[in-house]
């Protein structure tokens, strides 16, 4: 009982602490100086129509590299915690229904294609490597749900993941040699603004991020769903 009141007291104090953030803060009228630089110079400097993509891939590219590394470590942790011991037991799951199975046959290629579309057009439309990778991973989930005996080939997954990661870092180093700094996207010609083949290396880097994120998420889901004890 005393614990319950302590929790309520703590929450009340916490809410009181948050109150000034609502009552005393006046909303911004202008962009912050950093954002002003990104919005003003971004389109001409990098050639990307989607400013969020230019911030993620180039201006804050190092952060994104670190973020992908965190994702990798978390995926490795999940795989380590739930690793297989000995033989896989026969699946206990029920067979999927006919609707799900034949629906998957039609939907899976479309979902995969949509994921690839999202990360290729990351510099033009909303979306990018992270969203595309997630869409691909959800396509794989559909496949796993429809086919009870389906197995993910771990070796292929590892190769996709490590190759795209290595090429990502190599492109970053290439930026130091050919352009202004690490992960600079101007190692490729900027192209015509608003076209698919534009914005230098942003589509390339975002595709690599998409493949890496997709492979890592599929790895996480695969180790979560494996039927064994």
């Amino acid at each position: 009982m005393i614990k319950k009141y302590a929790v309520l007291l703590l929450l009340g104090a916490f809410a009181l602490m948050l109150l000034p953030f609502v009552t005393e803060v006046t909303p911004f009228e202008e962009l912050s100086p950093v954002a002003q630089k990104y919005v003003k110079d971004g389109p001409d400097e990098l050639g990307s129509a989607n400013l969020v993509s230019s911030v993620i891939v180039t201006y804050r590219g190092l952060d994104t590299l670190g973020e992908v590394a965190v994702l990798f470590i978390a995926a490795a942790g999940v795989g380590f915690m739930l690793r297989r011991k000995g033989d896989v037991k026969k699946s206990l799951r029920r067979e999927a229904s006919g609707i799900l199975r034949s629906g998957t046959v039609f939907l899976f290629p479309l979902v995969l294609l949509y994921g690839i579309y999202i990360f290729l057009h990351g510099h033009l439309t909303p979306g990018g490597g992270f969203q595309g990778g997630v869409v691909i991973a959800s396509g794989i989930v559909l496949l796993l749900l429809a086919d009870v005996s389906a197995k993910i080939n771990g070796t292929v997954l590892q190769w996709i993941e490590s190759l795209s990661g290595a090429v990502y870092v190599a492109l970053g180093v290439l930026g130091i040699v050919l352009a202004a700094g690490f992960l600079d996207n101007r190692i490729l010609p900027a192209g015509e603004f608003g076209r698919l083949l534009s914005a230098g290396a942003i589509p390339l880097i975002y595709s690599l991020i998409g493949l890496k994120v997709g492979a890592e998420l599929v790895g996480i889901i695969d180790s979560m769903q494996k039927d064994e004890l």
């Binding site: 989607n50 969020v52 993509s53 999202i118 909303p126 979306g127 990018g128 992270f130 969203q131 997630v134 869409v135 959800s138």
Partner: peptide
């Protein structure tokens, strides 16, 4: 923020 919306939905 359509980028964030897509990510959050997926």
């Amino acid at each position: 923020a359509p980028d964030v919306a897509m990510t959050e939905a997926a």
